[in-house]
């Protein structure tokens, strides 16, 4: 199954997701709003995407972007869910209820990006010490130990 077949499959079952779907580099990408994330994820799970492969975030300076990658045992194609967040209000519904795999991965994103997952049962820092200040993978994170490598390399 490739991205276009996935589009048909998706539009057959969940027409409301159809306008949000696009194909990039052979993978399907579903751009959803924060409010619709949980429902879209739940629908995709019912469609056969039973694995939450990866969950991460990207700091695009003017907004934050949550990136989920779902894979499936029955289909060879993967799908991304992308969700824009406003940095001033960086909260997103937790997907732990759908995939327990999100339990640690959401903690990691919380730790490194400061994105709060609503409904996460145990939202604590995971990689950094509990008393760490700031969220290092944000682009505006400052640390005296960090040196910007010169550009000429």
């Amino acid at each position: 199954m490739n991205g276009d077949q996935l589009r048909e499959h998706l539009c057959d079952h969940y027409p409301y997701l159809c306008p949000m779907f696009s194909v990039e580099f052979g993978d399907g990408v579903l751009a959803v709003r924060r409010e619709g994330l949980r429902e879209a994820a739940s629908n995709l799970r019912d469609l056969g995407f039973d694995r939450l492969g990866m969950l991460t975030a990207v700091d695009r300076v003017d907004h934050l972007e949550m990136v989920y990658r779902l894979t499936s045992r029955s289909m060879t194609v993967g799908i991304f869910i992308k969700c824009r967040l406003d940095p001033s209000e960086a909260t997103v519904p937790s997907l732990v209820g759908l995939w327990p795999a999100a339990l640690w991965q959401e903690r990691e994103v919380y730790d490194l990006f400061g994105i709060v997952f609503e409904g996460h049962p145990d939202l604590r820092r995971i990689l950094l010490p509990d008393d760490w200040e700031g969220h290092p993978l944000r682009k505006d994170y400052q640390d005296p130990g960090m040196i910007r490598r010169p550009d000429y390399i």
Binding site: G53, M54, V67, R69, P100, A101, L103, W104, Q105, E108
Partner: peptide, 12 residues
């Protein structure tokens, strides 16, 4: 760059 590490998920 994000590394989706299998050991991280397995350890959970």
């Amino acid at each position: 760059v994000k590394f989706r590490s299998p050991a991280f998920c397995n350890l959970a």
